[in-house]
Simulated scan of single mutants.
Amino acid sequence: MIKFFRKIRHRLLVENKFSKYLIYAFGEIILVVIGILIALQINNWNEERKNSQLEKNYLLSISTDLENLTYNTQRIYVDQFDEKIENLLFAKKYIEEPFAISDTIDFINTITKGAASFSGFYLVDDEAYQELVSTGNLRLISNDSLRKDLSEFYTDMKVQAELSKRYNTEYGNYVNAIRPFDNDNPSYLTPYDINEFLEELTTKKFRQLVDHELTYGYRTRRMAKSVVKNGRKMKERVDEEIK
């Protein structure tokens, strides 16, 4: 093709058709420019296609993270805290209005379960979003509104998790200090353990610790329900964007 155009230019010069040569040369320049523009446009299309696929992959990963986040938060900090609070209320009821105990070991174990999860609220499953931020690829999220909402959602999650770590109670440590607990053998309690535990139930300190743990339980469960609700809404938005 290049040889073909070269022959045409040579023939025009030989025949002394300079004006036609200029027109031809100008046309050839236009063709070259058009070719460059087409190549650039094709390159842009390819780049956009790659970015679009990369964006979709990130959104799919974020959707999976959000599903895991809401599932684990519901399972650990809503469902288990429902049981935790129920057991604490059971202890509070006995402390305030003692009743006959039919099964002492089961009674103590029920109250002890109120000490579960007493060291803060932890959130995970944000790997895909953190990778977006750390690699500078957050710009790949083409929907400005979604990008903004994702940023606010994960920022809020981080703040809540950090705040919850500061809110620890002594109930779990106290309960574990007055009775040993073996997950493989939860019925293991010596007569001394039983007597000490029942005596502690009558103290003002134990009642205050129960109330403190209840406050923590209510607060954490409320936070967890908010995470589940907002996480599910965010997942719906991400899934809609993927479609």
Rank of each mutant, 00 (worst) to 15 (best):
F118G: 04
T135P: 06
Y129S: 03
I141R: 02
G172E: 09
N183S: 10
I111S: 03
E97Q: 11
D125V: 01
I101T: 07
M157Y: 04
E97I: 06
N109E: 12
S117N: 11
R139D: 09
T112K: 08
L198Q: 06
F99P: 03
Y122Q: 08
T110H: 00
T155L: 13
V175A: 02
L198M: 14
P186K: 15
P180S: 08
R139A: 09
D125W: 11
F99G: 03
Y129N: 08
L138N: 01
S117M: 13
F153V: 07
A115D: 04
E199I: 12
L123P: 00
S151N: 10
S134E: 15
K148V: 10
R179A: 10
R179M: 15
E127K: 14
K113Q: 12
N176M: 11
Y129R: 02
D106C: 06
S142L: 12
R147Q: 10
T169D: 07
Q130V: 09
L198D: 02
A128E: 13
L150N: 01
F118T: 08
A116N: 15
T155K: 12
P180R: 06
N183R: 15
D103A: 11
F121Q: 00
D126I: 07
T104W: 00
N183D: 01
D106A: 15
R139Q: 15
R166E: 12
S145C: 05
V133W: 03
L138M: 14
Y154M: 09
E97C: 00
N168E: 07
P191R: 04
T135E: 15
N185E: 08
A177I: 11
P98D: 06
F121K: 06
K165Q: 10
S187G: 09
D103F: 11
S142E: 14
E131Q: 15
L189V: 13
G172F: 12
A177L: 11
S187R: 15
Y171N: 00
V175G: 02
R147E: 11
I194T: 08
N137K: 14
F107R: 00
